[in-house]
Amino acid sequence: MTATAARSHIHRDNLLTRSLSFLSSQEVILFFVLVGLIVLVGTSNPRYVAERNFINILNGNAYIAVAAIGMSMVIISRNIDISVGSLIGVLGTLSGSLAINGYPIWMSWVVPVLAGALVGAVIGFLVAYLRIPSIVVTLGLLSILKGGLITITGGAWITDLPKDYFLAQIKTPPVSLLGLNLPEIPSPIVFMIVLTILAALWMRYSMTGRAIYAVGGNAEAARLSGISEKRIIMTVFIINGLTVGIAAVLWATQLSIIQSTVPAGLELQVITSAVVGGVSILGGIGTTVGAMLAAILLSAINSALVFIDVSPYWFRAVVGVLILFTVLVDLLRRQRSRASARG
């Protein structure tokens, strides 16, 4: 793993390659796949592209896209977090418990986010300072959170939530812009887009953001150039905790009930979004924009499969093929740009 990373890093350091791969990037490819899918399904059933369904496609995986922001950074720094699904469950329950126990609504929205950051700090500390591999830490944490959630809630659902609690059901007021009537946009979509763009800008232009790529690409070189690897990894996991916290609040405030079971396979969906979005598991490359597009694409496929009457029995097989397909396209593209950079 180390060797491959180092090798590909040599190529990446080439300025020309870098700019080329930016132009024909995974984000652009994903965008076209998404558009292609929408056009294809939309022609067979125009309701698929109707405004309402379009917003639902964006909204459906918005919380996953938010969690994928932090996950992208974690993976870019050459770590992984497989506890996100359980953490979303725990923080969502925390949020709901605060709300039904009479705490102010804003607290039930903010406290889980801070708690997420705290958990992130603990993971970061164990990974960066005590040098336990992140997959081990989060594998352990996964069972601790999953079991702990049941122990504390006793398996009961949270119902009877106060009326103002439902953050994810708030919509933007209808706006008329340049004579166009913009639709009411649910808040998760706003969170998804704003946070993704902020994170992308931060990663591209801030010192710390760039240092994440450096640590993931080549930790040794990063250290030599004066970057504190430990501090960066710590930061990455705290940010991941924050985004998971926000995702958890969006998840919990979407419906009138909060389940005390952790959604099965949620962590895989978040990781899938990040890697399909072009975040290399070997660290060092990828962006949050790609992860967001991938999350939307997965949601669009889910919806499309209902629309075009594919047997739901085959849904997961289609998802698997899709992941392979996007990764293959990405690899071929990278090889070509590498080849042309050499030539």
Binding site: Y48, W251, L255, A264, S299, S303
Partner: peptide, 25 residues
């Protein structure tokens, strides 16, 4: 019309039901 799967997951159930509403109008 049709049956969709949604595991024991309430957000997925919500999304699937919404998709049905959008599909069949």
């Amino acid at each position: 019309l049709e049956t969709v799967e949604a595991q024991e997951d309430n957000v997925l159930s919500f999304n699937q039901a919404t998709t049905l509403i959008n599909k069949y109008g």
